[in-house]
Simulated assay, not measured.
Amino acid sequence: MKKRIIFYNRTGFTTLLNREIHRFMKVPVQTVLAPLISNMLYLAIFGGMLQTRQVGIDGVNYLHFLVPGLASMGAIFAAFQNPAFSIISQKFQNTIQDLNSYPISNAEKILAFVFGGVFRGVLVGLLTYAATIFFVGYEIEYPVFFVLSLTATSFVFASLGLICGLIFDNFEKMNFVLAIVITPLAYLGGVFFEISKLPGLLAAIKYINPIYPLVNVARFAFIGVYEGNIQVQIIITVVLILGSFLSASYIFKKGIGIKTV
């Protein structure tokens, strides 16, 4: 019986991954600088208005509370958009079927798209942190864990971006998901304030909001404090990584959005 190999064409995998990275690096103003400026505006507006506000978590300064949330949000949007818009662009160019002829395994194709999104997400997240050093300093409680948390967040949303890119056939539907689904979840996911401060049903959204544990884990890595049970949230993060990637793999291998009818 022939043994299945995930990486049987490393050159082809690297080529596809490089294409996904170079695709967004060709327009850095739109793909990297724009979200970075947006995050800095959030920092200026919320930080300027609420910098004297005491966070209800061990008396943490609000600016220190805000930075990991902004870094995570930047990673979420950047990681999601990269594979999603890459796939939809190929549909518009009528080249999406070419994926079937690439001499690499399905796993290599999937990982190339996801890793491209991860690279962009982590890049935006780290640049957001770097841009805030002047305001909050450079100290991070657990630096390696912080990078890993941004990587995990980017991996989850790059996988979700791949799923949406395969399912949807135009940019309007993709922008609808970004504006109506992901953006509200981010705002209610603890980016700008503690979820415990939300009233009634809004506070209960954290139990069904996948962004909440991701942001909370990043905040724990950044300042060493958190809301809720951090062990449970780390487990949820692992489940989200596996669930999103396996779902993307299943949809991709079924040929949804790729194979012609």
Rank of each mutant, 00 (worst) to 15 (best):
G189H: 08
P199V: 06
T260E: 12
F7N: 11
S149N: 01
L201P: 06
G48H: 08
I211T: 06
F77M: 14
V191L: 06
I236K: 12
P143L: 02
P210H: 05
G257S: 12
I211G: 03
F92K: 10
T132A: 14
V27P: 02
M49L: 15
K91E: 06
A218N: 00
N18W: 10
P213N: 10
Q81L: 05
G189W: 11
T260G: 11
F155C: 07
P28C: 03
T128E: 01
K109M: 07
Y138D: 04
F24Y: 11
A221Y: 00
V29P: 01
G228T: 10
L242Y: 00
E194A: 15
V60L: 15
I258C: 13
K3H: 15
G165S: 03
R219N: 04
I223A: 03
F85N: 09
I236D: 05
Y102D: 08
L148M: 14
G121N: 08
H64R: 13
L43H: 10
I133N: 09
R10Q: 05
N9S: 11
I45A: 12
G190N: 07
I251K: 08
V124Q: 03
R19F: 13
A71M: 10
L148V: 13
L162E: 02
L240S: 03
F252P: 07
F119Q: 01
Y129S: 11
V114C: 12
V55A: 07
S154Q: 00
G74N: 13
S38M: 15
N170W: 06
M174I: 15
A152S: 09
G116T: 05
T95S: 14
D98H: 11
I45G: 06
I195R: 02
V215Q: 02
S244H: 04
C164N: 10
V191W: 00
K254W: 03
A84E: 05
L123M: 15
